[in-house]
Simulated scan of single mutants.
Amino acid sequence: MPTDRLTAVPADVLAAIAEATGPVVKTEPVGSGFNSEIAARFHTETGTVFVKGLRADHPRVWTQQREAEINPHVRGIAPRLLWRLETAGWDLLGFEAVDGRHADYAPESADVPAVATLLRRLGQVPCPDLPLKTMPDRMAAYSDTPELFAGEALLHTDWHNTNVLIQNDGGALLVDWAWASQGARWIDPALWVLWLIAGGHTAVQAELWASALPAWDEAPRAAVDAFAQASARLWQEIAGADPDPWTQRMEAAAETWASHRGGSAR
């Protein structure tokens, strides 16, 4: 987030944040992230709170509600939500601040085992009774057999490395639950495979990491093949005719995985 982003926040909204956190002595904008108009650490005399927010009329303001709803169900694998404010035309979430860095998905990275552990823990979390999107619905436009992606598991679905925080003790936490969904338990490991390939792993190396997860052992081969092909079509659409370097890298990773699984988006 650009440093000047906070200057666009009305003074009464900043005052409401200070009322929730205590007097603010320093504000530290956070540069990464795609889904928030406000993303900053608010430092007080007693601690630090990470605040993310959108205007109430923003097209993605529903993501604030989703994060607020899901947070009580993912304690221990995600930072704790401390409060939610809907004030002066803004929707704000205050999370416990976590000291950590974004995960590194390179083949030699020591973060990869920590992310595998995080995935294993997520696989043990029951899916809450919330109106989550389902993976068959989300992937219906990209697959002839989206029913293969159905299931009862809680899924995060966005394994961008910036959504995984590696703490000082080496443990990992998962942030940004806006796209939480319900589907087959193997889908999060499958999506992680894509990001590992984008991070420099071969398809074989990436799937070897996924194979260490119980959910992967349950995955029907035909379903994973279909999901790889659907993912390649999805990223081809996202990239479009003139992709930026980030989407181009993901499109290439998805095509690599689809080819490895015996299919293609082409």
Results as ranks from 00 to 15, higher is better:
residue 163 N to D: 04
residue 138 R to T: 13
residue 141 A to E: 08
residue 144 D to T: 15
residue 189 P to G: 06
residue 184 A to N: 03
residue 195 W to H: 14
residue 182 Q to Y: 00
residue 152 E to S: 12
residue 156 H to M: 07
residue 182 Q to I: 14
residue 184 A to I: 08
residue 159 W to G: 07
residue 178 A to P: 02
residue 191 L to M: 14
residue 170 G to R: 04
residue 176 D to Q: 08
residue 140 A to L: 11
residue 146 P to A: 11
residue 193 V to I: 15
residue 151 G to L: 09
residue 173 L to C: 08
residue 146 P to W: 04
residue 180 A to S: 12
residue 194 L to G: 13
residue 156 H to E: 01
residue 187 I to C: 04
residue 172 A to G: 06
residue 195 W to L: 15
residue 155 L to D: 04
residue 137 D to H: 09
residue 192 W to H: 09
residue 180 A to R: 01
residue 142 Y to N: 04
residue 168 N to S: 11
residue 174 L to R: 04
residue 152 E to T: 14
residue 162 T to P: 01
residue 144 D to M: 07
residue 177 W to M: 05
residue 166 I to P: 03
residue 158 D to P: 04
residue 180 A to F: 02
residue 196 L to K: 09
residue 188 D to S: 07
residue 189 P to I: 08
residue 167 Q to F: 00
residue 144 D to H: 07
residue 181 S to C: 06
residue 148 L to H: 07
residue 144 D to A: 15
residue 193 V to R: 12
residue 160 H to Q: 11
residue 150 A to F: 02
residue 169 D to L: 11
residue 184 A to T: 08
residue 146 P to G: 11
residue 140 A to R: 15
residue 175 V to K: 06
residue 166 I to H: 05
residue 154 L to P: 02
residue 183 G to F: 07
residue 190 A to E: 05
residue 141 A to L: 08
residue 168 N to H: 07
residue 164 V to L: 08
residue 187 I to F: 01
residue 169 D to Q: 08
residue 196 L to R: 05
residue 162 T to S: 14
residue 192 W to D: 02
residue 193 V to F: 05
residue 173 L to E: 04
residue 178 A to T: 13
residue 164 V to T: 12
residue 162 T to W: 07
residue 150 A to V: 12
residue 166 I to V: 15
residue 183 G to Y: 02
residue 182 Q to C: 14
residue 156 H to W: 01
residue 170 G to W: 01
residue 179 W to Q: 13
residue 186 W to I: 13
residue 171 G to L: 12
